[in-house]
Write a protein that binds this DNA or RNA. Structure first.
Lengths: 156, 156
DNA sequence: ACTGAAATTTGGGATGC
DNA sequence: GCATCCCAAATTTCAGT
């Protein structure tokens, strides 16, 4: 899990390989090999190097939550009573499956979380019955995502 | 790209398969087959069904931006002059590679974006030279993520 | 660092229960 | 909906340049 080497250098071939795999993690290595004109073994070597550098941190299947009936994404800014409450609050938030992200942030709030709910009713229940009940949570501000128009990774 | 079937039902075996692939999209299907005790062909059938339902929306390699020297993640709430400016603003934001997400939101702001920068200096330049320059952008509020303690997908 | 080839494993279809 | 069988294709290693 090291990540502070001097800063990995990647060349144009690495970029091409990564672009294929960032698009579809199951693209066959031999298919990439044919497309960019080097051998499968060479790509293999490069991928092992990239993995060792820590740049490749894995691959994931992406699910579309809408198909399971989860249609409401929201960001919630949370004010905590005192800094001391932070680790406890995060620990409690981890137990709530609807919470997908949690950031300590500068600015108004102590933390900013992203949640995924079935609908607005579910979101309201989540706020009242779970988030607001956490000890140390004093106030929240909710921003429902009506539409996500950009969703991508770092561009290489 | 259909996603509004009646609402896909998935059973325990589907969940096991998905959990393996959400963790590592390149897990061999035959390995999953051995672990959960059914044949590779059966998993194949189920994956085709899940893909057809729209629940599986693809797979991605995940890069660790820190290794490339990108260490500052921030959320920026943007106030736009009038609703009319929205599509234009989003179009301009798409052209900025540092912008990874863009949400139309309820609440204070018109839109909320997530950006990835090398450092605070880079973030400041991005705000002053690019975001604030977009026509229609009247004011912004920035929240730097000091630490992301939760990062996951919908739990199945 | 890349190639080419060998050994092994996997993918994905056909067929039958 | 699942298992077995089967072959084409992909993965992965390794000696050679």
């Amino acid at each position: 899990m090291k990540s502070n080497q001097k800063q990995t250098r990647i060349d144009g071939i690495d970029k091409k390989i990564l672009r294929y795999l960032m698009e579809d993690a199951r693209t066959p290595i031999l298919e990439i090999a044919r497309n960019i004109g080097i051998s499968g073994a060479a790509i293999h070597q490069r991928l092992r190097k990239l993995e060792k550098s820590g740049l490749l941190s894995g691959s994931k299947f992406i699910l579309n939550p809408k198909v399971l009936g989860y249609t409401t994404t929201a960001y919630i800014g949370i004010f905590l009573d005192k800094a001391m409450s932070n680790p406890y609050a995060v620990q409690q938030l981890k137990k709530i499956p609807e919470v997908l992200e949690c950031h300590y942030t500068t600015g108004n709030w102590s933390i900013l979380i992203k949640v995924l709910c079935r609908d607005n009713e579910h979101l309201m229940q989540l706020l009242n019955k779970k988030i607001q009940q956490i000890e140390g949570v004093s106030r929240t501000e909710t921003f429902i995502s009506l539409d996500q128009s950009i969703n991508r990774q770092i561009q290489i």
